[in-house]
């Protein structure tokens, strides 16, 4: 649960706010489509029997842009769901812990990257209890080491700095 979220409940249509979810959704699609279309301009459509590498992404981008535009138009009619607040705490800590795991797995190894990921991701939740999560992180890491490293023999670095593997 994030503290920054305001009006998080809103699936029910309320007064028309200027910006609706569908409007943002449609604009996002149009942007992605435009990026894909102009990002592939240097690729050929192909000639003769051969279809080039550009045909498919550009064709799909055109279709996607069309559907995006349709969603933008439709967003001015019908039920209007407001865009709602944006929670920062969840994405920051959960995705941050994933990034930390990626940074540390090859240098520090699973023995350190594991508990790091568990503890940092737990910060995303207000309900987390410090002592509990530290013990849990250690136990879970032990379990993962036993399971992945020794039972399944995946080549995950354990603690390269200390053990060399």
């Amino acid at each position: 649960m994030s503290g920054t979220a305001a009006g998080a409940s809103g699936d029910n249509p309320v007064r028309p706010p200027g910006i609706t979810r569908d409007l943002v959704a449609g604009l996002l699609l149009v942007t992605v489509a435009a990026g894909a279309f102009f990002g592939t301009t240097d690729l050929s459509n192909g000639e003769g029997a051969g279809i080039g590498p550009g045909l498919m992404p550009r064709g799909i981008a055109l279709l996607l842009g069309g559907v995006g535009a349709l969603i933008v138009v439709l967003s001015f009619f019908g039920a209007r769901a407001p865009i709602g607040g944006i929670a920062l705490r969840g994405p920051l800590f959960v995705l941050g812990s994933v990034v930390l795991f990626a940074v540390s797995i090859r240098t520090l190894g699973l023995a350190f990257a594991g508990p790091l990921a568990v503890i940092v991701s737990a910060l995303a939740d207000r309900d987390s209890r410090p002592l509990e999560i530290i013990i849990f992180a250690a136990a879970l890491t032990l379990l993962c080491v036993g399971l992945f490293k020794f039972a399944l023999r995946l080549p995950i670095p354990l603690a390269p700095m200390l053990l060399g593997y």
Partner: peptide, 14 residues
């Protein structure tokens, strides 16, 4: 859930 989701995060990462 406060314990379940960090565990899912770790399993997914590995």
């Amino acid at each position: 859930y406060r314990l379940l989701f960090p565990a899912i995060v770790l399993f997914c990462c590995i």
